[in-house]
Nucleic acid binder design. Structure first.
Lengths: 211, 211
DNA sequence: CTAGTGTGATAACGACTGTTGTCAATGTTG
DNA sequence: CAACATTGACAACAGTCGTTATCACACTAG
């Protein structure tokens, strides 16, 4: 039953990849529309105009699809944030601002992606574990990406990780409030506030670490 | 079919309240054990050794039960935090520390309550809206509870609210990491770090507001 | 003791779930 | 053309969901 031949001018591998991508994208639709409970094999397939057969062609399990969907969003955020941070001038405030603005840009222009990140926080089982890993990875990226925090010992590293978790959780909370409409604020203002608070925590932690 | 008479020496109202409380408590069990998906009418009733009839006696809907469960936890946290804050000496650091320690004490001694708060963050529909309201209420409590932030104008109040959201989101993230075992840290250390970062943000925001 | 109320177990309903299988239609290749 | 690969629609399985109803038993009130 292996799919190997070409079909409508598209190779078998390309068609598989195409369907897989469609399922991931459609999962984001379902997630945004009906929450985690709205993501079922049948629902996603129906919305993607595919049959369950093609779901099991690309994923063993619903969890695999959810993980792939969340990963696609998280990877995009990390990629853009880090690129912006690397391109920013050698100034703490400028670097933080660039990273936050770039990351916010991803979820601000696609509400589905914001839902994906938030829903991942509440999932259970594999989704929850994945989220743990992602948050920790982000924290390490923050630590490594900021020259201010380089050259830390092991004790300070745990402090730095705690700080990174705090910064991300706080930013996520504020961003969620803005995207949901509860907190009305321009993008520039949002980035300003977040940058200010991040820098406040970063500076204080660095000062406390030196002391 | 109205329940009015006494039974085993307990009045009808008391029995209803007892069953309602049992369902709320059992819902926390299910939530902690199997996540949001594990909370179903049948599952909760089975675990509580009640029949679905008594579920519909106290709740119209599963959402109502979830809301009641989350509310019970959130109310407890708010109550204890505010009491501790009010009892603390007139010092920013001491007040923040007291409030954080009291709030953490609630979830630290009962993992189910931590799950409830975290799961509420990712819910959909009514649960999500409720969480929005709760977070905003907390933010206002923080603002009103800290003399440092009193007497703010409307513009500063939005800044203060943004800050309060940031502080809560950050604290939640770190607390979740500690409770899940990803971040090993003593309670004293955790409270120290959170207090330090809260005070850093609070001081900086107050400084920026004055400028 | 009798009549009535409260309780708990169980069944039923249609709808949905994950998963697998079948079958006709459509496209490709010999 | 014939032979085959690929697609999409649909059925089937057992399980759970929310919700309501039924029935026997425990208890209380008169």
């Amino acid at each position: 039953m292996a799919v190997t031949g070409a079909y409508r001018g598209v190779s078998a591998d390309d068609r598989r990849a195409q369907r897989r991508g469609l399922l991931i994208d459609t999962a984001l639709d379902c997630l945004h529309a009906d929450g985690l409970a709205g993501v079922s094999v049948r629902a996603v397939c129906a919305r993607a105009r595919l049959t369950p057969r093609y779901f099991y062609e690309s994923f063993d399990d619903l969890d695999q699809l959810l993980l792939a969907s969340v990963d696609s969003v998280v990877d995009e955020i990390a990629e853009r944030s880090l690129a912006a941070l690397a391109a920013a001038p050698d100034d703490l405030s400028a670097q933080v601002r660039a990273a936050i603005d770039a990351g916010y840009g991803v979820v601000a222009t696609d509400a589905r992606k914001a839902s994906a990140v938030l829903v991942a926080a509440a999932g259970h089982g594999p989704l929850r574990e994945r989220r743990h890993k992602l948050v920790t990875d982000y924290a390490d990226l923050i630590i490594d990406g900021l020259p201010l925090l380089n050259g830390l010992g092991l004790a300070e590293r745990r402090t730095a990780r705690t700080m990174a978790l705090f910064l991300m959780g706080g930013a996520a909370e504020v961003i969620e409030a803005v995207l949901s409409g509860r907190l009305r604020m321009s993008r520039a203002n949002l980035v300003d506030h977040l940058t200010r608070m991040w820098v406040a925590v970063l500076s204080e932690t660095e000062r406390a670490g030196r002391a």
